[in-house]
Structure formats: structure tokens, C-alpha cells
Design a protein around this nucleic acid. Structure first.
Lengths: 343, 343
DNA sequence: AGTTAGCACTCTAAACAATTGAGTGCTAAC
DNA sequence: GTTAGCACTCAATTGTTTAGAGTGCTAACT
């Protein structure tokens, strides 16, 4: 009916959510009065709870089972009730230590980051590696392998590397390859990679180049190496989900693990927060593909200087400890940004 | 007592294993006579089964539940009873298509391979990426990023790329970097990467080089970039395990997923087959860390020319369809070898 | 001697009923 | 507006029974 929440209503709802986060069980009127020093009788609380149910903040699995906060309740909680904890020194320390690692392979950094997210939050850590296209071109290099196979390596400003093996028709000498890369490095310097392709196409039109077979070849190879770049996702700590009591059931588990395998859906979801300023939260069925309707995601974008590179986050049950997770995600994103974008 | 297996014993054991593979249920004497056209009564079969149990090939979960083949039985089955199917055209086609992909990032190839292993076998696909150190040096390259950060890219003969971001103390110009990489490329050409480090150390001793600050710098950077290389593992299709009836239980599932997270153990296991000639099979608790005692692994090494690069395989329940899986693993290893090692 | 029919016995899984307890909604009194 | 009291509901637990599959053993059969 009326969506106006009295002060007491708010207080009781918060108590219920707290309890539910701790226990994963429906909360009854008794436990609300007992645990939280409310000077009210269970009966009164029952009345209020009835109202809250009416408003869509609570739902009961069945008549005699207590009540469970709905997604709507969690939304309210996250938006206005929640008091974010501050992250502990220890956690900061661990995040920094893990992410930084000592000299790591660049891909390793993302894997390690998602691992630390999962291990500190006790949920599932996820990192979307930068879309290569969102980067700025820095360097291209051709390496001759055995046969006619050529390895094309492309590097972005922030040090992300993409490499492809391409079958070349004609036999190119090492010298040719060096000249090709010099030419392209000049041509593409400082260009956003998303524009590299159009630039290449334009160049191919050029009269001068058309008569230089080598340059044409170079353009063609580099174009090929840009085809079908997939976004990489790093997910770690899936086992943590198994510890959550609400998923202690084979069917639900299957659902969830299937959800994790559908990378494209996850990417689509996280992509939506690319432009968000800081932490972003998706709750339960709010806006998900159906498979994830009991999960929530806390995300934050990471950036190198002004331009956003990717998104990272934590996936956990809807009743996760947001107060604890939010600062973890936030801080990790900051560290990763620092790591990639140091000017 | 006596480990000698009569002809009939062999036949019955095989029948039981077949049934068990299909149903995942204990097999009773009735079903053995019924399903397989044996001209014997259940009572006779019971006698034989009793003998087989004595010999350690069967075990009964409880008195009235039929019998289950032991790991020892599967070992026998795999070693001498099994008739390997031949791989279908369709499967060959799919493996080739998937692994080859059109122009893929090199790491992508491994991921895709493990994905195709899982999707065709319906179990879990696993690929151990080549230990970088097992490769032959081809090329090194330094790319300057913002700040004093330098990206070191090292490429092997077979096109495996390793890249590291290294904080450099002093400011190096692009020219410096080119000279450095020229020097190193000359120095290290054709060397096995496992020997690169010692070569570098030796070079650092050299009088001539010692007075050339740039070369010293180059050697130091390249040495750093070789530190702590981890082996990468690609595991795909973990959900498939959830479909196996024998794991339709939360506790067992946890066990298994924990096993999958312990990458180092998996690597240790697969590493043992590096030197195997072709397909290798690990059954159940035979030789595993305890977590995997209901799983088996079928592995095969893949190579580039003469030297083995890595191992791939399929992980499934002990009762997996070995006849089907073995040729899949074998063929996939061959395709991957071809893909990486084409001369 | 090897094979088989028959039968008593064992043990699980499924089905069913009874019990318990947490929780609710409603009403009447404070 | 708040609360005590009470009847009612429903899932989860426990105990009991039954059905069915399978075994082991013995005695008879070939």
C-alpha cells in the first residue's frame, strides 16, 4: 500500500536483515525482540512485520517459518540503511601484497587480483580484463616462427599484451618484419586501439601504399590480429559459494555453477558498471539473467588515469556482508588502477 | 587369494564394469545374467562374484546392494580388457575446428583446447600450458610504458609469449631499449630457455660487458623477467562433474571442487606423464592426493617436434567411459602438437 | 565337480504416521 | 497504540512399516 517507512519499521527491518545475513534462516518475531534490544513485544513486532510484508520488504516461505528480506529490502538496505565498515589495515596489506606480487606476468596480475578478492571476501572474486580496444596503442612487433607462421604482438599504453599467431602466405625475412613494425609503429602511435582498424583501412586506400607490397602485407597482418578479440574474465574462489547454506542443495549448486560458466552473461552484466563512478551493486533478480537470482554482485571499475579499463567485483549470496565487501572491492579497484596506470 | 582370473571370471567382471559405467549403481547377479547373454544362472554368477570380491576386484557397499568394481578392477579393465573405440569423424572435425579457431590469442588456444576436451568428453578438460622454461628462446623485446615501467616480452620458438612489467630505476630511451634487445637476441638465439639464465649470469661476469652500463642493465632486466614463472593450468567444464550421479551430494561436491582449486596438486600429477609416450591413465585413489579418490584422469603429452611441451587430459569419475575418452584425449593432443609445432 | 533352484536372511529406500516446535494471525484486554 | 493469550499452520524430525533387491548357503541335479 503505502511505501512510507516509519522509523520503527526501518529499525525492525534492519534488525531482520542483520539476522538474516548472519544466519541465512527466516527470522521470526521472537528473535527480533530478543537479539536487538528493542523494548517491544513479539506481538507488536509481528504487526510491523506484517506491514513490511505488505510493502514488499519481507516474504514468508510458508505460514510458520518467519520472514525473509526480499530483494527490495536489500536494495533499501544497501542504499540507505547500510553503514559501510572501513577496511582493516591487515586487509589493505594483503590486497597490496597479493596484487603487486613480485614481477608477474601481466595476465597473472588479474588472476591474482580476483584471487585476493575471493579470499578476503570469502565469496567469489571476478575481474574483467581490460578490453583491449579500450586501450591506447603503444607498440606492434612481428616475430617469425618456424614455417610461415608469424607471431603478432600488440602492446597498449598500460602494458596489456595481445598476441596472435598468423599463417602468412609468403615468406618474409626478419628484415621485412622489422621494417613492417617500424612503419606501423609510426603510423599508429598514440591511437586508441578502437580506431586502429579504421586507420588501417584508410591507409590501405592510399595510393602510395598500394604499390608497396610489404606495407600492404603489414597492414593486412595487423588487421587480422585485431579480429575477434574476446574479453577475458578471471573468476576465482567458486568453492566459497559451496559454503553458503542457502546453496546446500545439488540443484541450486548446478544452477550457480552454470551461471559462472556463462561468461558472456557475466561480462554483459559487469560491463554495465564500466561508467559507474565507484562501487556499484546488483542485487538478486533485480537485473540479472535468471540463473543468478539468488546472487548479488558488488562491482567497481578500475582505470588508468582518465579512462576506465575494466571492472572487478565480488559475487556472493544476496545476503552477503555488504558492509564488509564494499570497502574491499573499492580498495582493490584502487590498487589495481594504481598498478596499471601509474603515470 | 589367488589372483588368477578364469576366462569366465574375466567375462563377468567386464560385464559388471560395463553395467557400472552405464548406471553408476552397484550391480547385482541378476542384472549380469539378464543384460549380457551369459548362459549362466544368477547363482553361479554369485559364486564367481564372491571369488572376484575375494581377489579384490569387487566390493559391496553393504550386504544387499550388489557389487561395485574397485580401482583394481578398473586398472585391469583399462590395461587389458578395454577395447578402445575409434574416434568419430564428427568429433575429429569438432576438435580441429575448435582448437584451430581463426586467429586466436595464444593463451586462448589452450583455453579453447581444454574447452573442447570437456565438451566432447562430457567430463572436465584440463590443459597444462607449456612450461616456458621447456621452450627454446626466440625473441626478446622491451617496450617502454609510462613512468619508468618497462614491459619485457619474451617469445619462444613455438610462439609462447611471456610478458612482465618491470620497474626500472633509470630512465631508458627508446633507442637504448632497441639496442638492448638486439644485443640479447643475438646472445640468446636458439638457447633453451632453461639455460638462458645461466647464460646471462655468465655474460655478466664478462669484463667487456661489465663496463657497458647499458648491457648490464639489459641482462639484469631480462634476468628479472625470468623469475618465478608459474605453470598455467586451464580447466574447463567443471559443471559436467555435477551431472554425475555419484557426486549428487553436497559434501562430495565440495571435495571435488576443492580438488580442482588445488592447481599445484593437479600440476604435480600431470607432470608425471610428461615423459609418457602416449595416453596415460590414473585411476581413483591409485596415486592421487586424497581429494580425488573417486576421480580418474586420462592424459596425453603434446609436443613440438622432438621435445614435449605440456600435458592435457580429461578428468572424470572413475567409472568414466574410457573407451570413448582415450581416443579423444589422444587425438586432441595430436592436434595441439601439430598446431604448436608445425615445422 | 560344476551348476542351479530354493529359501532364509540382511539391509536400504520409500512410504506413512505421529510428534514437536517455531511462528503466525486474531481478538480482547491493558 | 501495545500486548498477552490462544488457536492454528506447517515444516522438520522421529519412528515404524513395508517392499524389493540382493546375498549366502544348502541340497539336489547333471
Amino acid at each position: 500500500m503505502n511505501d512510507f517507512l516509519t522509523d520503527r519499521g526501518r529499525q525492525i527491518l534492519e534488525a531482520i536483515i542483520d539476522d538474516y545475513i548472519r544466519t541465512a534462516e527466516p527470522v521470526g518475531s521472537r528473535s527480533v525482540t530478543r537479539r536487538h534490544g528493542l523494548a517491544l513485544s513479539p506481538a507488536t513486532v509481528r504487526n510491523v512485520m506484517s506491514d513490511l510484508e505488505e510493502m514488499g520488504f519481507l516474504s514468508s516461505p510458508h505460514t510458520s517459518a518467519g520472514r525473509v528480506p526480499t530483494d527490495k529490502a536489500f536494495r533499501l538496505y544497501v542504499d540507505s540503511l547500510l553503514q559501510v565498515q572501513s577496511i582493516t589495515e591487515d586487509q589493505q596489506e594483503e590486497i597490496r601484497r597479493q596484487c603487486r606480487g613480485r614481477c608477474m606476468d601481466v595476465a597473472e596480475i588479474f588472476k591474482e587480483t580476483s584471487r585476493v578478492l575471493s579470499s578476503i571476501s570469502h565469496y567469489v572474486g571476478i575481474v574483467i580484463a581490460p578490453r583491449f580496444a579500450a586501450n591506447v596503442f603503444r607498440h606492434i612487433e612481428f616475430v617469425k616462427l618456424c614455417g610461415n607462421r608469424i607471431l603478432v604482438i600488440m602492446v597498449s599504453e598500460s602494458g596489456i599484451v595481445q598476441n596472435r599467431i598468423i599463417e602468412s602466405e609468403d615468406n618474409l625475412s626478419n628484415d621485412d618484419l622489422v621494417r613492417m613494425s617500424n612503419y606501423l609503429n609510426d603510423l599508429l602511435q598514440g591511437l586508441p586501439i578502437s580506431e586502429v582498424k579504421t586507420r588501417i583501412l584508410r591507409e590501405m586506400e592510399d595510393e602510395k601504399v598500394r604499390y608497396d607490397k610489404l606495407m600492404t602485407r603489414a597492414l593486412k597482418l595487423s588487421k587480422e590480429s585485431l579480429e575477434g578479440a574476446e574479453v577475458e574474465v578471471f573468476i576465482e574462489g567458486q568453492v566459497n559459494i559451496l559454503e553458503q547454506p542457502e546453496f546446500a542443495d545439488v540443484e541450486k549448486m548446478k544452477e550457480i555453477f552454470h551461471a559462472f560458466e556463462e561468461k558472456s552473461q557475466l561480462i554483459a552484466l559487469l560491463d554495465r558498471c564500466m561508467d559507474a563512478d565507484r562501487v556499484n551493486i546488483f542485487i538478486g533478480s533485480e537485473n540479472f539473467f535468471s540463473r543468478m537470482n539468488r546472487l548479488s554482485v558488488v562491482t567497481a571499475p578500475y582505470a588508468s588515469g582518465p579512462n576506465t579499463l575494466g571492472v572487478l567485483g565480488v559475487i556472493g549470496p544476496t545476503r552477503m556482508g555488504y558492509d564488509r565487501v564494499i570497502p574491499i572491492v573499492d580498495y582493490t579497484a584502487r590498487i589495481l588502477s594504481e598498478l596499471l596506470g601509474r603515470e
